[in-house]
Design a protein around this nucleic acid. Structure first.
Lengths: 239, 239
DNA sequence: ATTTTTCTGTAACATATGTTACAAAGGCGA
DNA sequence: TCGCCTTTGTAACATATGTTACAGAAAAAT
């Protein structure tokens, strides 16, 4: 549970200025506004900036969502936890992206995932009422919000497809084709561990998958360097 | 691909009156408005009512989403298709629910799933510009839309959890606990086939799962009647 | 340059789920 | 009541993935 100390809020408002975070202009929520416009909108509402240290839990699955969070510095990750405690990382959220966008409205209003700081991070916290006020004041922000929340759904749809519809070879093939962009030489930007996390499978399975593709002759893999031999064969693997 | 004939649109506007569908008041999108208020909003915008016969594809995965669809009569289902043609049903959509809510805005604007009519159905079709106009005219509709789209994300989050985090026994246990609501006697409202579809697994596997739970002594199953013997044991099965 | 940590490659084995198949039971219309 | 279709129960078998383990390679830290 998160605890709000009103004195802190007031204090923080003087410690942090919105102008300190000019890249907010690039945030999905504030796209199309200048930092001065953003600051002027914010001068009318309540908000705070909170700090989290590496590994700290920002919100726990089940917490009430009555505020909008925007990552200002550092990065956080969302991960789901099953009953036995096993986790799967859903995504990393980097500045200046918002989080919990899909849970501010709607029926449930509780976080479905744990949010954990990957590193020391600062988050902008905007209470729901203030968000609504922003919507009223600025049509742009509203549209941006609609877009964000839609992208969220789209991301989840993709994730479902990915998690559910493919064998491990398929997921790897999919991933390779995606980052190869038609080129035949690929250098993986993630470790097998990270891929495993992304795919929701175990690390040895990823290794095995790559080896299988190699043995099938559709790729030549050595460490992170992969050469695609047979594009069609790879597409076939999209099971 | 869907083809719009402008003459049809104009024609349909005279054939169908919004007032013919009073249950629109219960639609997630129009909640809080009376049918007359809805009709008055609609008098200002373009829309049409389209008919689909049983089994007909309403939209294909990949189609552009430039309009909002609301199920008026009948029912439709969304299903994902993988590369090999295997499908998994994502959900049924009954009147008066909207669909494609999460793809009207956001980056992609293409349907991620096929939408197929379960039976003869009528759908209300509202072009995106008209939706925006509705938002401007009526704050209620906007808020309803935000809620719908959020619920969508929440649904998908749940789905991911369900698909990814549990063994078949776990899914069954989960399902049983959900519909049992504390009572020890449950009568399944779905066939094993439907459960299999819901869980994204095969039918014999569902059968085996139920049998296993039975043999473990946590339930007593006979056909659709299930008696929960050991609630804690069942909770343990939530993997 | 050396140590330490992380990453890769791989293996043996366990297990969950899919595949296919068929028979029995149940529901339902003729 | 009969026959038909759907649903259930179950089995044998195939396969994909998880689990655990360990050694060598690569990368990072000291």
């Amino acid at each position: 549970m998160i605890f709000f100390d009103l004195r802190t809020i007031r204090l923080k408002k003087y410690l942090y200025m919105i102008q300190d975070f000019p890249f907010l202009e690039k945030s999905p929520l504030f796209r199309g506004l200048t930092i001065n416009e953003i600051a002027s909108e914010f001068s009318e509402i309540h908000y705070q900036v909170k700090k989290y240290s590496k590994g700290q839990m920002v919100v726990s699955a089940g917490d009430i969502v009555d505020r909008l969070l925007v990552v200002l510095t550092g990065s956080v990750k969302g991960e789901m936890v099953d009953f036995s405690g096993k986790t799967i990382k859903i995504e990393d959220i980097e500045p200046p992206k918002p989080l919990a966008v899909a849970f501010l409205f709607g029926k449930s209003n509780t976080f479905p995932v744990n949010i954990i700081a990957n590193e020391d991070s600062e988050l902008l916290v905007i209470p729901k009422e203030s968000v609504l006020k922003l919507f009223q004041e600025n049509k742009n922000i509203l549209l941006n919000f609609l877009n964000s929340i839609s992208n969220r759904s789209q991301f989840l749809s993709q994730k479902i497809k990915f998690l559910n519809f493919q064998t491990i070879k398929g997921k790897i093939a999919n991933y390779l084709l995606q980052i190869a962009q038609g080129k035949e030489l690929v250098v993986l930007d993630k470790s097998q561990n990270e891929l495993a996390e992304l795919f929701g499978v175990t690390r040895p399975s990823v290794g095995r998958g790559i080896r299988d593709l190699h043995n099938d002759g559709v790729i030549e893999a050595s460490g992170k360097s992969i050469k695609i031999i047979d594009f069609n064969g790879l597409k076939e693997c999209l099971k």
